[in-house]
Structure formats: structure tokens, C-alpha cells
Amino acid sequence: MAHSVATLLFILSSVGPAFGVVYLQIGTNYTLQPKITGKPQNILWKFKGTKVVEYENNNYYWYKDYESRGQLDILSGNLELKNLRKDDTGLYQSEIQVDGRLHNSDHNIEVMGPVFGVVSCRTGTNYTLQPKITGKPQNILWKFKGTKVVEYENNNYYWYKDYESRGQLDIQSGNLELKNLRKDDTGLYQSEIQVDGRLHNSDHNIEVMGPVFGVVYLQTGTNYTLQPKITGKPQNILWKFKGSKMVEYGNSNLDWYKDYESRGKLDIQSGDLTLKNLRKDDTGLYQSEIQVDGRLHFSDHNIEVMDGISQPKVSCQDEVTLTCSVDPGVQAEFEWTGPDGFEATGERLNISQVIISKIDSVFFCTAKNKVSESRTSFILKDCYKDAGHYCK
């Protein structure tokens, strides 16, 4: 029974703190701190289960290349790692004996290259990815979504897929220029560049978009033409609305989807798409993908369809408030004008006693939204059944 208790106590003393993941940049230094109390007699650090350094009987034992870029503090058990690399990412574990008791700790670090923010580019333009290294590269590797783009090694270039025809690698800086950007170039680009025996990594995100036209406000029942503004004669045309196909043209065939054929018209010479008899549910994002001379062109168009405004109506409330209204469900803003340069905004207008005394005053209410406006007039005396008790 005593043996079982002793075993249990040893197990409990062997379980140390587990620290959260620490994110670090390539080339920096970091110190792993087990945070023990007392002077260690024996120290062991491991990385992914493999020994890094061992201290025992006043002797150090370093493994792999850690001695050249590591430093062990035998008074605290701290392990400093210098010039961090991506392959230093993972779990570090310490086993440290103090006063006959074994202390354990787990440390997770993730080492990353410089991470550049998302850069937005237009289709058809060029963009240069810049890893911003110092020194002349010996080896260069660029990847896109984990797949090789270009490799430079022993003075030889190796291009993959179609990147050689539209890419340019600067072997002095490691910069990679991408030409004639397409929408499918959107994503993560990563560099691995060796300079003076050290590996440098960087991550770059780009998003490639077609020309983005501002929101166009349109009235229900009207027609509107979406114009991608391309140059040249299209071979293939695709229009989508909220990601779903509307119309497709290719090999001299025209394919319409849903009810768009009955109220749409496609100009195969320009790629323009006309929408007829617009409805509120036509509001949203329209996208074109048009191939001209083997190159794909994209464009994004946002429209918002709303009802126009019929003539507003003015009514009286409690003889001192005028209310201007339009048909239910119609978006509108209201402006008032009146005698002596009077101006006000809002659906309701509170009339002062001074103005009430001018019983023949005429007020105008203008209701408007982004597609139309309408105005009506109102004579103040219409608020009163008997206006005779007012002095003019």
C-alpha cells in the first residue's frame, strides 16, 4: 500500500504546466521558461520527443545543431532558442529535477515568416510579391496554395504550370512578379529563400477582382444595361447573379437560366446584359466572366432596385402638426418648405403659433428617394373647419 502511495505521489509531481501556443517570427529569439522553484540538479529538454539538450553532473550534452543556436540557463532551466526557423514549430518539453522531485512542462510554439496583409488587385494588372530579405539569395522557392510556382537553385530556374509565361523572378531580391492577374490567382503565396545558409519565409495574400462598379439605384419597372466595358470581341460570356448563372454564351450557343430569357437581352458583340422590367428582388451583385482573345475578363456590378414615389399626401394632427406620407413600403425622405423661406425636414412638421396666425399659408412637402421624387402643396386653413376666428 505504501508503495502505491509513493508511486501516485511521483506521478502527480511529474505533471507540469502546459503553456498555450506562442506565435513567433522567423529569425527572432525566444526563451522557453518552465518556471520552477529551486536550483536544478538535472535538466532535459526535448523537441517533438527528441532530445535538444541535457544537463547532468555538471555536464552539458547538446544534440543536432542546437548548441550553435541555443543557450541553457542551469540556474532556472530556461532554454533560449536563437534565429528561429519554421521547422522549429512544435512541442517542447522539459524534465527538470529539483531537490529529488521531477518537474515537467509543455511549450508549444509556432514560427511564421512575415505575414503581409491582403492586397487587392484588379484582373489584368501586374503585381510584385516582395519578401523583403537582406542579402543575395542562394535558393528561392515560391508556392501558391502549397503548390510550387517557381524554384531557383544552383543557377537554374524551374517554373511550374503556366507561370513561366506570366511570371518573372528577380534572383537578386527574391521578388516574384505576376502578370495579367486572373481571379483564380487569389490566395496565399509563400516564399522560402535561403540567404547565407539561413532560410527566410514569408506569406502573402492577394485577392484579384474584376472592375468593381459602384452601386446603381434603379426604379422598379425600368430597364438597365450592365456594361463590363471590355475591348475586343468575346468568344465566351458568362453572367451570374448572386453566384448563380443567368446566361452563358459559347461556341455560338446561348443558354439562359431561370426566367431571365423572357426579360433579358445579351449583346454578344460587347458582353452587355440588359435587364428589363426590374423588380425589387433583382437587387444584388452581378458578375461577368468574358473571354477575349484567350484572356478572361471579370467585372462586378451592384444594383439596388426600389419603388418610385407617387405624389405624397399631407394631413393634419391636433391642428399644429402636419404629416407627410407616401405609399406603405416605399423608402422616402421628406423636406418641407413654406412662407418667408421656411425649411424643415422629416415626416412631421410642428407649426408655430406665429405661422398658424397666417391661415392662408401654403406649405410644400417633397418626398424623395434615390430613384425619384414628388411634391405636393397644402394650404394651412384646410386644417380647420372654421377659420373665421383667425385675424388676417
Rank of each mutant, 00 (worst) to 15 (best):
C324M: 01
E177I: 00
Q190L: 14
F363N: 05
E67P: 11
M246S: 09
L188S: 05
L188T: 07
E343K: 15
Y92E: 05
Y157S: 12
T28D: 15
L75H: 02
C365P: 00
S94T: 07
P312W: 01
T321L: 09
V5K: 13
A2S: 11
V52F: 03
S4I: 10
R69E: 05
F213N: 00
I206M: 10
D307W: 00
W336V: 09
V53G: 09
Y158K: 07
S120A: 13
A387L: 01
W336A: 12
G187H: 09
N29F: 05
T220Q: 04
N156I: 03
D196T: 11
S165E: 04
E373S: 15
S4E: 13
N251A: 10
T376I: 12
H107N: 12
D281Y: 04
P114V: 14
V354R: 12
R101E: 15
I359T: 13
P339H: 06
E333D: 15
I355A: 14
V21G: 06
L169D: 10
D87S: 11
V362G: 06
E335R: 11
H107Y: 10
Y189K: 10
E67Q: 15
S372R: 02
Y127E: 05
I309C: 02
S173P: 10
S13K: 15
K39T: 15
G210V: 00
S315K: 11
S288D: 02
N57M: 05
K183C: 05
S270N: 02
I359P: 14
C383E: 07
L72N: 06
D184R: 00
Y249N: 03
D272Y: 03
K392T: 12
T366V: 06
S105K: 01
F116I: 13
I290A: 07
Q33H: 14
A344F: 03
V98E: 07
